[in-house]
Nucleic acid binder design. Structure first.
Lengths: 113, 113
DNA sequence: CAAAACCATTGTAATATTGCAATATTAAAA
DNA sequence: TTTTAATATTGCAATATTACAATGGTTTTG
């Protein structure tokens, strides 16, 4: 069937899965790291750095943009991408929520999810 | 071409991507939450809870097992899965490393990745 | 032993993802 | 206005993922 049955699951589960998917490719992690390290980047840089083709990089950037993690702005004449810090912080919340929840021994007396 | 060019990227990037991929499906998040909440589970429970078929659940469990997040043990006569707490804690490290690294304004004087 | 319960595996189909060549598109420079 | 550059989009091919029916292997019950 191929398509995930997202309707079965709750909002938190689906949201976290979407965020995780963005981090689920090493190129996108490398892109995020590079963009942050250089504060921003003219994204043909990424082609040279990764060795991936320009359309492939563009595609990965689109995936990262889709969840709002990138800000685009002109510096002088060129378009630069930079990390949307607010979104980056926000992204950590569902991860940390799950991390914390599953760290502790569950309390049987409290409610269900 | 369809296959990720993992050789282009470094160990941390590939490792994090693999971990993220495990969390990149709501069913696997639901499974992890359920297993933790009930300490362990007889995994036909998950079929009833999610509405996914038994082979699909089994497949997702295999994915989670592959990264070592599950421990299997017999309780009485039945096979129960439980969360490998050590692995769960360990999984958080690369995520938090990336989270923290990209939180701060990068220090231009320090070294490259 | 036969039936039932549970789970894994296999086979198959549908859809998604990854990647690149070719081709737009857009904006600055000549 | 043409050329150049940077990036986006389209089209296609290869591979991966998701899902389930059918089947197989175990173990427990009857």
């Amino acid at each position: 069937m191929g398509a995930s049955k997202t309707h079965i699951f709750n909002y938190s589960q689906n949201t976290l899965a979407v965020m995780a998917k963005v981090l689920a490719h090493p190129a996108r992690i490398a892109i995020l790291e590079h963009i942050h390290k250089h504060e921003s980047c003219m994204c043909n840089d990424l082609v040279g750095i990764t060795g991936l083709s320009q359309p492939t990089i563009s595609q990965h950037l689109t995936e990262i943009k889709k969840v709002g993690l990138l800000k685009a702005s002109f510096i002088g004449k060129n378009l630069f991408y930079s990390l949307n810090q607010e979104k980056w912080i926000a992204l950590q919340i569902p991860f940390n929520t799950l991390f914390t929840k599953l760290n502790k021994t569950p309390n049987k007396t409290t409610n269900e999810n």
